[in-house]
Design a protein around this nucleic acid. Structure first.
Length: 855
RNA sequence: GCUCAGAUGGUGGAACUGGUAGACACGCAGGACUUAAAAUCCUGUUCCCGUAAACGGAGUGCGGGUUCGAUUCCCGCUCUGAGUACCA
């Protein structure tokens, strides 16, 4: 029989499902290997051809590892809380759980037809109570913990309380809020319970605090920094503004240093590590205190160039700085007020747009340089950011270009401080040379000077060495419905955890998915929803909560007494290979590392890093096709279409055309006439009897008619062909446009492979004769090549090698069992259905992934 | 601006540690089979010169360098993509 991919694929998919062929074992002496894909958000649009790329690669690798004798965990699930289902619910009144369920069904069908070897018995869905019970549980552990810098790990909050009771606040080195109380043991004990709780909140790893947040009015919720791009929400593209709100946050900054250091221990793409390094933004420098002249106040600045302190000719505060009002003299009040009003009006975007225009205002006050007693002016300017460092800088115009421009604009002095500095046209931030005009560090080099200045500042009590991070604590609350409820209620205005026995705190029903009239989150609509009469927290957790620990749940997905059993965690430990997109660099991947480290600190997990090796699969872009509609003399669109090669001779306007009615850039004219009713009587100006379309690379999207659905390709060529074609397209990590041209080549290859086992009449015909030298040579070449390729994730080259091998064996008219049986095994990770079929036709038992190993 | 990645035929790409550039596939051209088409098979296909072949010349974004030898290593530049953006 000819190659009947449809029957073969259906048959084996059913067999694998019924026999749970790919179920990972929990008790085995085999070495473990954990292959993880980034689980999808099940959107309404279903999968397009770009989504499975990473899944195919991970599936090939998983199947390969099984052949190599590993006990492979290769699970799949759904990140099923999220905004689109909720937006849809707002529009239609349909409960998000219902649309989510329907979308998951579509995803599952699409995934199944590709023949993935997922262990579905371990499926997780973040929106199910059985799962989010443990997301809430982790939240509670974070609430019950503080970060002990001395031990460099998270510890139980009870230990902190114990310390307070015995020693007061002395001897505690914690990551905490800035305004903490200093007290003795007796003073602590004398505090009311409320006061104690309020104080502890400043230490907890998840805490409630008034903070400036990214508020998105259109979405009606706050967003985390990584969910905002250029002043607009990442989802939906709505404007985002800054607003002060009481908010739940995660003290991820406690882990900043460990998150940074850990990067050196993991096998991740360098650009991704670089992105995380930049996001964490560690900078080593010093805090310097400048006293304000004739006032008791002082201004603290952060600088990475303490050595340049003698070049400081003014101070600049952010317009939002808390001391601005008190520093402003009566004479300068109007100027300052005007400036602040003006700065406030500017949106984030405008502020970035005029990065080059310099503006600011003088407060009228003066500060004193702690090292030389110089009196310098205090200004405000929006080039200083309130959110970074202390919101104030010491301006050294000779060394910093921003300060330089500012000094030029407002005629402030510029003092050179290094002998080789050239400051005629711009600032010179050099670290070479020796210091001048710099008091006691004159003549020293950069290294010596920095150390000397910091030592002197410490001696004078005017400063100290300080490491600063750009990363902020992560805002954790969302004023939305479709997310995990926060397991907290309020008593006397203070947050309290609900009892662990009351988990999960189930998402209540509401009449509408919108905020209430007085602006409270949707959960305020829930009738009778309270904790023994006390009010629950009304915000829900952000999208990244559920995905920050899901790889642990796969280890033991059904467990009802722990997020995963200690035995399961001790065996599976961490993810050996993680495949997914680089768009999660500063969100999911950072939060996951954070939670992983926390869970290790509290003794629940085994490894410091969750994902040993990570590969970014490239984005599959859309490849749009265009037709060219002729424009007549008066500028009206006609119903005549000009082939691409001829458009220079006509006036035309390009029009997207559905890529599914175009093959190799040639338009199917009949299908085009049915594409839209007004094209029914379209006319064409052809070249060589064909209508050739234009091409452009764009994002894959419905509106551009360039979405290619895998269902269509599976229907036409089968899953094995699609799997191999996606790999054949190019290196996994590289972004590339999808182009269905060429899939025929892979299909032909599989058919040719099939034919090796059959005679001219398509009758199964395999010989038991001894293979020739040439045949053995081909076989050994391909085995070696494919092993090398898989180990370095070069799947595209192994597909080529398979083609070469099959071409060679076809030329040799080889039909020897000794050759073909091994070919089946090495090809099986790539094209599992056809291989399983041929494997059984050769007389072997089915389900060979468990039984056989690589030759 | 800064950081990172990349640039090879008509197209996707290969050449892994410096050793025959263009594997494999698509497309295209020609041919076989067919009444015809599809499917299938065969041949050719980097460019230039040459009727064709042998042969000759050029060639991996551009300009230099190291080397017996460079797509590969080094320096400078151009362009494309991604990330980031007044971070003191």
């Amino acid at each position: 029989m000819d190659y009947q991919f449809k029957d073969i694929e259906q048959k084996w998919q059913q067999f694998w499902a019924e026999n749970q062929t790919f179920k990972a074992e929990d008790k085995t002496t085999k070495p473990k290997y954990y292959v993880l894909d980034m689980f999808p958000y099940p959107s309404g649009a279903g999968l397009h051809v770009g989504h499975p790329l990473g899944y195919i690669a991970s599936d090939i690798f998983s199947r390969y590892k099984r052949l190599k004798g590993f006990n492979v965990l290769h699970p799949m699930g759904y990140d099923s809380f999220g905004l689109p289902a909720e937006q849809y619910a707002i529009q239609t009144g349909q409960h998000p759980a219902i649309t989510t369920e329907a979308n998951i069904a579509t995803y599952r069908r699409q995934l199944d037809q590709l023949g993935f070897s997922f262990d579905w018995s371990r499926e997780v869905r973040t929106s199910e109570a059985g799962y989010y019970k443990w997301t809430q549980w982790i939240f509670m552990q974070l609430f019950n913990s503080w970060y002990n810098k001395a031990a460099d790990k998270a510890e139980a909050i009870d230990k902190l309380v114990e310390h307070f009771e015995q020693n007061g606040s002395a001897g505690i080195d914690a990551v905490c809020d800035e305004e903490i109380l200093s007290f003795t043991a007796d003073e602590w004990k004398a505090l009311s319970n409320e006061a104690q709780q309020a104080e502890l909140l400043k230490y907890r790893l998840t805490y409630l605090r008034e903070s400036t947040v990214n508020w998105c009015p259109a979405l009606g919720t706050v967003l985390a920094n990584d969910e905002v791009k250029d002043g607009f929400s990442e989802r939906g593209g709505f404007p985002v503004e800054q607003k002060k709100m009481m908010q739940w946050s995660m003290r991820i900054t406690a882990y900043a240093d460990r998150l940074l250091k850990g990067l050196d221990t993991i096998d991740w793409p360098e650009p991704l590590k670089e992105m995380q390094r930049n996001w964490i933004g560690k900078s080593v420098g010093a805090l310097v205190r400048f006293a304000v002249e004739d006032k008791s106040e002082f201004i603290e600045v952060f600088t990475t160039r303490a050595d340049t302190i003698f070049g400081t000719t003014f101070l600049v505060l952010a317009p939002e700085h808390e001391l601005v009002a008190s520093l402003t003299t009566p004479g300068q009040k109007e100027a300052i007020d005007n400036y602040i009003a003006q700065a406030k009006k500017k949106s984030e975007l405008e502020r970035m747009a005029d990065a080059k225009t310099v503006s600011g205002a003088f407060t009228g006050s003066y500060a004193v340089n702690p090292l030389n007693g110089e009196k310098i002016q205090i200004w405000i300017a929006d080039y200083v950011l309130a959110g970074y460092g202390t919101g104030a800088v010491m301006a050294v115009p000779s060394g910093d270009q921003r300060d330089y421009l500012f000094a030029k604009q407002y005629l402030l002095p510029i003092i050179p401080i290094i002998d080789i500095q050239n400051i005629e046209k711009e600032a010179d931030p050099t670290k070479e040379g020796h210091y001048i005009n710099s008091g006691f560090i004159n003549g020293l080099t950069y290294k010596e000077a920095t150390a000397a200045v910091v030592a002197k500042l410490e001696e004078l009590g005017a400063g100290k060495a300080k490491v600063n991070f750009r990363m902020r604590d992560a805002i954790f609350g969302r004023q939305r419905y479709w997310g995990e409820p926060v397991p907290v209620y309020f008593k006397d205005g203070l947050p309290q955890l609900i009892a662990e026995a009351d988990l999960p705190l189930v998402l209540p029903e509401v009449d509408k998915y919108l905020p209430t009239e007085d602006g409270e989150p949707p959960l305020a609509r829930a009738k009778g929803w309270n904790y023994n009469g006390l009010e629950y927290e009304l915000s829900t957790m952000p999208g990244w909560a559920g995905s920050s620990w899901y790889w642990f749940r796969y280890m033991d997905a059904q467990n009802d007494t722990a997020f995963a059993s200690p035995e399961a965690i001790a065996y599976w430990r961490d993810v050996d290979l993680y495949i997914g997109g680089s768009e999660h660099a500063t969100g999911h991947l950072l939060y996951s590392r954070f939670w992983n480290k926390f869970l290790k600190d509290i003794g629940k997990t085994a490894e410091e890093e969750p994902f040993k090796k990570l590969i970014n699969q490239g984005m599959i872009q859309g490849r749009s096709n265009f037709v060219f509609r002729m424009i007549d003399e008066v500028g009206r669109a006609t119903n005549t279409f000009v082939s691409h090669g001829l458009i220079k001779d006509y006036r035309v306007s390009p029009l997207h055309v559905d890529v599914n009615i175009v093959e190799n850039d040639v338009l199917d004219i009949n299908k085009f006439k049915q594409f839209r009713s007004d094209f029914a009587d379209a006319e064409f100006i052809l070249e060589n009897g064909k209508y050739v379309c234009g091409v452009e690379i764009e994002k894959m999207s419905k509106s551009k008619y360039n979405v290619v659905n895998p269902d269509v390709l599976v229907e036409r060529y089968g899953a094995d062909t699609l799997r191999m074609y996606e790999m054949f397209l190019g290196p996994l990590e590289q972004s590339k446009p999808w182009n269905t041209n060429g899939i025929e080549g892979v299909f032909k290859f599989l058919r040719k492979f099939w034919r090796l086992f059959h005679d001219d009449a398509w009758k199964f015909n395999v010989s038991d004769a001894e293979p020739s030298k040439a045949e053995l040579k081909s076989l050994h070449k391909i085995i070696r090549k494919v092993e090398e390729d898989v180990e370095r994730f070069s799947f595209n080259t192994s597909v080529s090698s398979f083609m070469i091998a099959v071409n060679e064996l076809t030329d040799l008219k080889s039909n020897k069992r000794a050759i073909l049986q091994d070919m089946v095994i090495i090809l099986s990770p790539y094209a599992p259905h056809i291989c399983e079929e041929l494997w059984t036709m050769l007389g072997n038992p089915a389900g060979h992934t468990l039984l056989y190993s690589i030759p």
